[in-house]
Each structure stands twice: as C-alpha cells, then as structure tokens.
Design a protein around this nucleic acid. Sequence first.
DNA 1: ACCTGAACACCGTTCAAGT
DNA 2: ACCTGAACACCGTTCAAGT
Lengths: 196, 196
Amino acid sequence: MAPESSSGGRRSDAQRNRSRILEVAYRAFSDDPDVSLNSIAKLVGVGAGTLYRHFPTREALLLAVYQEEVEQLVGSVDRMLEHEEPLDAFRSWARKLAAYARIKHGIGEALTSPEAQEVIGATWTPVSRAIARLLAAAAERGEVREGVDPDDVILLLSALWRVPEGEAGLAQADRLLELIVDALRPRTGVQVRPPK
Amino acid sequence: MAPESSSGGRRSDAQRNRSRILEVAYRAFSDDPDVSLNSIAKLVGVGAGTLYRHFPTREALLLAVYQEEVEQLVGSVDRMLEHEEPLDAFRSWARKLAAYARIKHGIGEALTSPEAQEVIGATWTPVSRAIARLLAAAAERGEVREGVDPDDVILLLSALWRVPEGEAGLAQADRLLELIVDALRPRTGVQVRPPK
DNA sequence: ACCTGAACACCGTTCAAGT
DNA sequence: ACCTGAACACCGTTCAAGT
C-alpha cells in the first residue's frame, strides 16, 4: 500500500498538466488571441480550476507560453552582431521583434502595458537587455549616442506593431524604424565613419 | 387624433436618448474605462437594445463620447502656434494629447489600433491634420524636415501614453518626446537658426 | 419608428467535493 | 496535494413584444 514512495510523491502529474496546458494554449492562442481560458482548459481536458491554479491570470499564461520564444529571439542578438554592422543588427532585430509581436498579439501588450511591466519583468527584462546590447555596440562605433534608455526604445518600437496590416502597414513600419534610428543618432549630426 | 403632426414625428425622443447616453457614458467611462455597456444602459434608464441601436459597438460609443473634446484639443493648435515657436507648440500639444489619452484610456487605443483606424477616421483624421499643421509650421523654419507623415508621428507619440503611471513615467515621457523631436529634425544635422 | 427588457450563449473565477 | 466541474455573477448581443 506504500502511500508515498520517494520524495516527489504526486508532484509529477501536476507538472505534466502544466506542460500540457502550455502546449495546447500555444496553439489556441495562435488560432485566436482572444480564446477563453475555459475553452483552453476544456481542450486540455483539465478542470478550469487546474488551469487557474497553474496560471492565475490570462497574462501569466500568455507570457509563460511565449517566454521560451522570446528568449530565443533575445538569444539571437549575439549572432546577429557577429554578422552585421551594429546599426543594421539593431534594425534587423527590431523588425524580428515587431513581426513576432504582430503575430502573437498578446505579447505586444505585455511589452507595453504599464501594468504588465510591474507584474512580469520576465519578458520585459530580457528584451530590454537585448536592446541595451545592440545600442551599446552601435554606440561604440559612434552611430548612436550613449546613455539612451533601452526601455524608452521598447516603447518607441511598439509603434512598429501597431501599424495596420497589409503592405501599406509594412511600408509604414519601415519608415517608423528609420525615424527611430534617427532619434538615436549622436546629437552632433556629424556622420562618423566607423574605423576600419 | 393626428398621428403625425410635423415632419419630425417621434424622432425627438430618440435624439434625447442619444444625448443622455452620451452624458452618462462620459461619467461612467471616467470612473471606470472598463464599465459594461449594459450597466451604462441601466444607469441611463434605457433598454440595452436602445444603447446598441445608437452605438453598435463599444468603440463607437467611446469615440462619440470623446469626439467633442478631441475637437477642442485639435482646435487649440492655431492658438498655440500664435504664442509659441512651432517646435515648442508641437511639444506642448503632444503633451496635451498624451495627458488626455492617459486619462481617457480608451481614446489612446482608438488612436493606435489598426482596426479603429479603418472604422472611424472621425477621431483619427482631425488629430492627424493637427499634427500636420504643427509639423508644417516647424518645417517652414527648418526645424523639422519636410515630408514626414503625420500618421507616423501619431504612432510614435503613442509611446507617451504607454508610460507607467507616476513620476518616473512622466520623466520617461519627457525623454521620449525629445527622442521623437530628434527623429523629426532635418537630416543635415546642421542646426538652422530661425530667421529673426 | 423607437423602445423595452427578458433571454441566449457565453465569460472569468471560485470552491465544495472527490481521489 | 492536486484535480474536477458545477455554480456564481457577470458579459455583449439579440429580438419578440410592446407603444
């Protein structure tokens, strides 16, 4: 009858549920960003209470779902800096972030809503650090000024995924990105050639 | 028994309802931006269907409520241009818009959500024109470059009202506004003194 | 014509009862 | 310990019935 054998005990099925919820939620959010939590629970085959036990708010679930991918995006910074000029790397990376936020509608909100900033940090902070690294690399070449707050840049970048869908929107996003890059340039206005 | 006397007929009570809904909704939204439409209908003392007849979506009601005030804000542009240097007028006006959007939470969404842009225009367009006027005045002095799309500027400005509440947020908004102004400066980088 | 308000199919969230 | 799922108090929206 051995009610408890090793240290873990019953913990395993809870962990199993957690990962199944994440898996199903990922697809559900992709289909429809406004999908209800109840319906996700039903899809998983789990009681609503179980979902709420693991993820107390919609935002908590949303972030857990996308955190891994955000980390991947964040992790791509170093590689990009090796293959591109810093400012181009910044542009490419910003475009990737925007494309991601445009598709995964929820994540954009999480990156700009003041409330979310306080609660999470888990998504915000890595993104902020990634931008800091890109800006630092560009600043070293004198292509952007120093001391720009990366959090300010996130907020400016959020314009990129608020653009309307379609081709006109993409063109607008390109213009916006150039405006943002201009905003970051050194104040002198004298174009500095990077040293060979 | 004269079922219809003049041309208007029964139209007047519908009009009355419309304005009462707007009046009550204004206060209700001020108290709580997420207030339900049903509860507004109840506050007005009107059937839910009546509210929906006048304003088919939440956004429609929200915009109707704030349209008058937006117009007032838009109307203040000319006066500001008379009393301030164009670029300062732009700064002041942007701050006003941001403060307004920060308080009337809904309006910020209406000014940046792509869906809203298509549906409405009634709020978007005047704001866009106001910014165009400010930019044109500044461009005449050579303080900003020409050909900047005012809609791009709205999207950039939206960063101002996504800032967290409190003092830190206001400081961030100030930094952001300066970054945006920098983004609009002439590309030459040579500071042009306005002619006396 | 316009309005009412009950009714419908949901929603997020909780919590007693089970194992 | 953890899970279930009925239940609660809502929500937006519709539409037959009234005037």
